[in-house]
């Protein structure tokens, strides 16, 4: 998780189609994809990963998609190779394993990537609140993510102070003496965090937070025309994925894949 990633959670682009989509629709999409990926039969999963790849590419996530496919292929090759060496029979069902790692893993990963790259932190909080998640849950989330860049700066400052004082010379020192370095870092890191939390809490109270933690969001969650279209498309795709399992049974797909892989 880099600073650039946190910046992505804050910077807005009003002309982006997926960014303008209601966050609840995106959360629903992740939920549906995860459920189908875990519980669905082979045909469903293959269709599912096709849909998810199309979604990721249309959102401009082609780098994520390529990385995910390459990584899962490499993982499959390495694990099958290791299994063949360790066990006389190797992997019992390499085709099923390939589908599992390619379809299930990538479908879940790419949908989650689509959610996090097209959703602003604020919109995520508002969507959760509109789903009846109390502000008592969303406020710490906002604070936590918003505080990560600040804490990274703090950690850099602490690390620099350790280096310039000669208490740590290089990252290798931390690897050689992890307990000593961790002890040195811990005190200023925790105490700075407590002080900064106090300052932030003071700012919250003087800026009107307190009593009933209820707000009128400046950018409320709203189902607009395009949200309805996307939701309808999602249900359509889900129905298609589920129906495909009745048309093409598992063993037919497994046989075809084993033919190709084998």
């Amino acid at each position: 998780m880099s600073r650039a990633f946190v910046t992505r959670l804050g910077e807005r682009h009003d002309d982006d189609f997926f960014e303008g989509l209601d966050t609840r629709v995106k959360i629903l999409t992740v939920f549906v994809v995860t459920t189908l990926a875990i519980a669905g039969p082979l045909a469903t999963q293959l269709l599912l990963v096709t849909f998810v790849l199309a979604l990721a590419l249309s959102a401009g996530l082609w780098r994520w998609a390529i990385a995910a496919v390459v990584f899962s292929l490499l993982t499959w090759m390495v694990l099958v190779g290791v299994a063949t060496r360790l066990q006389s029979g190797g992997v019992e069902d390499p085709a099923g394993f390939l589908v599992g790692i390619m379809a299930r893993g990538n479908a879940i990963f790419l949908t989650a990537a689509w959610l996090i790259t097209t959703t602003k932190l604020y919109d995520f909080g508002v969507a959760l609140e509109s789903l009846r998640v109390p502000v008592a849950m969303t406020l710490p989330l906002t604070v936590a993510v918003r505080f990560i860049p600040t804490l990274l700066d703090e950690m850099n400052g602490i690390w620099d102070a350790l280096r310039v004082r000669g208490l740590v010379r290089s990252p290798w020192d931390a690897a050689r003496h992890p307990k000593r370095v961790f002890d040195l870092v811990l005190t200023p890191a925790v105490l700075r965090s407590l002080r900064l939390a106090d300052e932030l809490a003071c700012a919250a109270e003087t800026r009107g937070m307190g009593g009933v933690l209820r707000r009128t969001p400046y950018r409320p969650s709203r189902m607009r025309g395009k949200d309805c279209v996307v939701t309808a498309a999602l249900f359509g795709a889900t129905a298609l994925c589920v129906a495909s399992a009745f048309v093409v049974p598992n063993d037919v797909i497994a046989g075809r894949i084993n033919l190709v892989v084998g």
Binding site: G10, K120, T142, V145, A203, G210
Partner: peptide, 26 residues
């Protein structure tokens, strides 16, 4: 309480970075 006074009183402290709650300016 402080939040009840906030419609009358606004406070700016030394370090703006510890007063922000959101990631986006708007």
């Amino acid at each position: 309480a402080p939040w009840e006074r906030s419609r009358v009183v606004a406070t700016v402290r030394q370090n703006p970075a510890t007063q922000f709650f959101q990631l986006n300016v708007g």
